[in-house]
Nucleic acid binder design. Sequence first.
DNA 1: TCAATATGTAAAGCTTACTAGACATGCGAA
DNA 2: TTCGCATGTCTAGTAAGCTTTACATATTGA
Lengths: 63, 63
Amino acid sequence: MKNRLKVLRAERDWSQQDLAERLEVSRQSVNAIETGKYDPSLPLAFRIAELFGQPIEAIFLRD
Amino acid sequence: MKNRLKVLRAERDWSQQDLAERLEVSRQSVNAIETGKYDPSLPLAFRIAELFGQPIEAIFLRD
DNA sequence: TCAATATGTAAAGCTTACTAGACATGCGAA
DNA sequence: TTCGCATGTCTAGTAAGCTTTACATATTGA
């Protein structure tokens, strides 16, 4: 799965650390998801979607 | 997270086994997700949403 | 130039998602 | 009654998500 986290973060001028704090996960998790090391769990995907005010499908894309 | 799998399955008259085969997961996984033992991974949630033709948010609900 | 911030990465460890195999129960059909 | 199917559950194992700690590099600002 691909995702638009980096762009969404850039639009808000948030660092990975900023995003991690808002999501209540580690910075390494944000980095790993962004760099495609692994996919977030479903609960985390919901938190991400809620934070950015978009449907999960608009942020995460099947590849 | 709660989910509407049981209802969606019932609407189509599918057994847990039927659903498992269409999702290419084990029957135990379908059962565990339905009975709330754990949440599906994000990729599996996407497959479920695609199979039922609904957004993830319409099938899985935060509790 | 030095310090702080941002990003990427790695190891070790814990928790969660998923598997196969097995067993129990209930139920409708032959 | 007996058979087969559907569901729930359990165990043991593997894989994936996530944490903390740590280190390396690049960039920016005082």
